[in-house]
Structures are given as structure tokens and as C-alpha cells.
Amino acid sequence: MATYNLKINGKIRQVNVDPSTPLLWVLRDHLDLPGTKYGCGVAQCGACTVHLDGTAVRSCQLPASAIGKQAVTTIEGLSAKGDHPVQKAWLEHDVAQCGYCQAGQMMSAASLLKTNPKPTDEEIDAYMSGNICRCGTYLRIKEAIKSTAKK
């Protein structure tokens, strides 16, 4: 067990966990932030995507010991009022079916748009293909990303 002071959604949160504990489970089991989802645990589905210093990472692969001073942003902290452009676009396009994958999809999309504000279809495909949606909402996700890019 080790104690970490993690910077999560702008706040310092202290946790006492085994150093190997993936950030995913730190968030879900220790910090009551269940918006980040478990889908595979092996970096295959993207459901657990969060931002580490602004860049999308798979939290199921990131042990608590490797986070250090880097700032973690989860879906709960993507915006104060749920009005990040990506979140608004998701609502406008009524993207979700079951909704389980969508936090991860939005975190990936927000990260993509930050570095590439006007991605092409191919760039969206390339960036987003690590995020599985079992319900098949891919077309709407792409439309939502493109509508954000236009603004």
C-alpha cells in the first residue's frame, strides 16, 4: 500500500492503494468517480478513457504509481456544467444508445479535437478506433465530432 496525492479534476485527492492499482479502479472504487467505465481491462475498448495532462489515455493501463503530478481529468470533470462542446454535440445528435461507452468516446473525442480542431473522417476513424461502441453509434459519434469541429 502506498499513499498518493493525485490531481483529479482540479482537486488534490489522497488515496491509499497498492501501487499497481490501475487509475480506473482508483477512480471507481476509491474516489467515487464511476463515470469512467470498465469494459475490457486490457486497453482494447476505450471505455476507461481519461485525460492525463489533457491527452487521452486508457486508465485501465495506468497504475497509480505512474501518475505522479500529472493532472487527471475524468468525464465528471470535463466541464463544470456538462457543457463542453463535445458534450453539447453529443446531446444535439442524441448519440447514446445504452450509453455505457460514451464517456470514453467523449474523452477521446475531446482529446482529438484539442490537437486537431478540424479532423477529416479518416483522422476521426484513426483516432477513435480504439473506442468500441457495442450498440453501434459510430455514425452519430462522427457527426457529433464534425459538428463540434465546424464551430
Binding site: 446531446l91 447514446a96 460514451q102 464517456a103
Partner: peptide, 9 residues
């Protein structure tokens, strides 16, 4: 439930 879904409730 759209708003809840996009905010990770």
C-alpha cells in the same frame, strides 16, 4: 437520460 449520460452520472 441524455444529460446524465454525457456527464458520467
Amino acid at each position: 437520460e441524455g444529460q446524465k449520460i454525457i456527464t458520467g452520472k
